[in-house]
Nucleic acid binder design. Structure first.
Length: 250
DNA sequence: GTTGAGCGTT
């Protein structure tokens, strides 16, 4: 669903895809259009949305017709405050086709039987080399928590989904696979097996993981309930301070 | 009704 999408996405050939990140969940293509359109000719703007909620995922794809304009837009709109949020504009990679993409531009939509593309240096040779270092600094600092929990909001409405799918959680097979893999140090650490067949640490680690999270820490589950009745133990502060605070002065 | 790394089609 692109802004210019009449019957689907336009040809990506000879187009420069820009990835706009850090945009607000309320920002739409229409909001980005006037911003990017001012810096160049926009071929298309696409904002992936959640198939469940339909909300924006927080990033958009802006396709420019020319590389210089795209680069200019990146330089201009990158870090721009949009809707109260700093957006990050950078050249986008089209998934697995990224190898055929150079600076966001689709070099060749079809795979090359020859490894020629492999031989040549896809390294950037633009005058904007300095920009790469500028972006690779640390301004892209990622937060300590990721938004991967964005789907968690579904649990609020579909929180009942856990009951109808109790086995939806991690399968024991996963543990078995991991455990079996850990039990094969010969293939993972051949130099390690020369001393001993396997390390007890691995066994312990596997045992911990296999152990139930609830029974692994008996001390974490004190038999004492956290709901002390005010009537059952009123003689904690009242009785203590009673003789003292009761008669501060005569 | 919330959120904040990333890479795309209704």
């Amino acid at each position: 669903m692109s802004r210019f999408g009449r019957s689907g996405p336009p040809p990506i050939r000879d187009t420069y895809s820009l990835l706009v990140l850090n945009i607000t969940f309320r920002t739409t293509a229409d909001d980005l259009f006037p911003l990017f359109d001012k810096y160049g000719e926009i071929v298309d703007i696409y904002i992936p949305r959640d198939r469940r909620t339909g909300d924006s995922r927080g990033f958009a794809f802006v396709r420019y017709k020319y590389e210089d304009e795209a680069q200019k837009a990146v330089d201009r709109l990158d870090g721009r405050l949009v809707d109260g949020r700093e957006i990050m504009v950078q050249f986008a990679k089209y998934g697995p086709n990224a190898e055929r993409i150079n600076k966001g531009r689709i070099v060749e939509p079809v795979p090359r039987p020859r490894g020629r593309s492999r031989s040549r240096s896809p390294r950037r040779r633009y005058r904007d080399d300095y920009r790469d270092d500028y972006q690779d600094r640390d301004y892209r600092r990622r937060s300590r928590s990721r938004s991967r929990d964005r789907y968690a909001r579904d649990r609020y409405r579909d929180r009942d989904y856990r009951r109808r799918s109790p086995s939806r959680s991690y399968s024991p097979e996963d543990y078995k696979k991991r455990g079996r893999d850990s039990l094969s140090p010969a293939r993972r650490s051949p130099s390690r097996s020369r001393s001993r067949s396997y390390s007890p640490d691995d066994y312990k680690r596997r045992g911990r993981d296999s152990a139930s999270p609830a029974s692994r820490s008996p001390s974490r589950s004190p038999p004492r309930k956290m709901s002390p009745s005010p009537e059952r133990s009123p003689a904690k502060h009242n009785d203590d301070r009673s003789p003292r605070s009761r008669s501060p002065s005569t």
